[in-house]
Design a binder for these strands. Structure first.
Lengths: 128, 128
DNA sequence: TTGCATTTACGAATTAATTCGTAGATTTGA
DNA sequence: TCAAATCTACGAATTAATTCGTAAATGCAA
């Protein structure tokens, strides 16, 4: 495996904003965070600075007001977290994770439809 | 929501052992952990004592050598962690999580088979 | 019995995450 | 221009997780 990335919940919150908005300033990230909870501006700043050190983020320092973006893709983190979860609480069984997820969400017909379509797609590919 | 449980990785390691072995002593848990990594006995003990405080574990103190077991089910933790993950990195979409998981594991034919069977089961139930 | 081994409880050191205040640089606008 | 506002950097306090040493109690075996 390449590098093991393990963002904290606070870091994930920031990554989500950056994935959604693209390159933005600390100010913009901070205002987004404040919609959900109390937070000091320098707290957000510090978090993002540490994330730079950890290589979770990149930034453009051309202007005084730096512009930040994620250094990793959402899919990369999703894959890693799913893998860790399968190892940690699903005894290494991916199907158990999928079944647990399906069990929790089969109420949602639209979600189920998407999954079924996707499964059929895989089916078709495998037959070729 | 009832209580928000968030075991650390160390705690999850212990929970896994207890889920697998049932009620056991610190010694037994510790020996299991040592198969995977260096660890001091009192470190394991302390972790388990703290998990008692957090209500993650229960213990029988009848004999001097206490016997521990998990206070929560594997399924309960699985459900909570999946939920948190969907909220944190899947934009609230369960189907995205399932698809990502399927994408990573469709190589494994046996796992895929289990999932397909399970999906068909849900199908059948939903039609009734 | 008596001493060795095991177990628990406890406290302290270490490390990492989180939070925020302050200082200094820079920009802005009245 | 120059004062207020904004931004970065930095350090320090706080909190939680992790690790382990030591002491006291208990059990066991010769």
């Amino acid at each position: 495996m390449s590098k093991q990335i393990k963002p904290t919940d606070s870091e994930l919150e920031i990554l989500n904003i950056l994935w959604q908005k693209g390159p933005v300033t600390v100010r913009e990230v901070h205002e987004e965070i404040e919609k959900k909870k109390e937070a000091g501006y320098t707290t957000t700043l510090k978090l993002m600075q540490i994330m730079i050190e950890k290589k979770l983020l990149k930034r453009d320092e051309t202007s005084k007001t730096h512009v930040y973006q994620s250094a990793i893709s959402r899919e990369q983190i999703q894959g890693q977290l799913i893998q860790r979860m399968i190892d940690n609480v699903f005894n290494g069984s991916a199907s158990q994770l999928v079944m647990q997820a399906l069990g929790n969400y089969q109420a949602d017909a639209k979600e189920m439809e998407k999954i079924k379509t996707y499964l059929e797609e895989i089916e078709r590919k495998n037959k070729k």
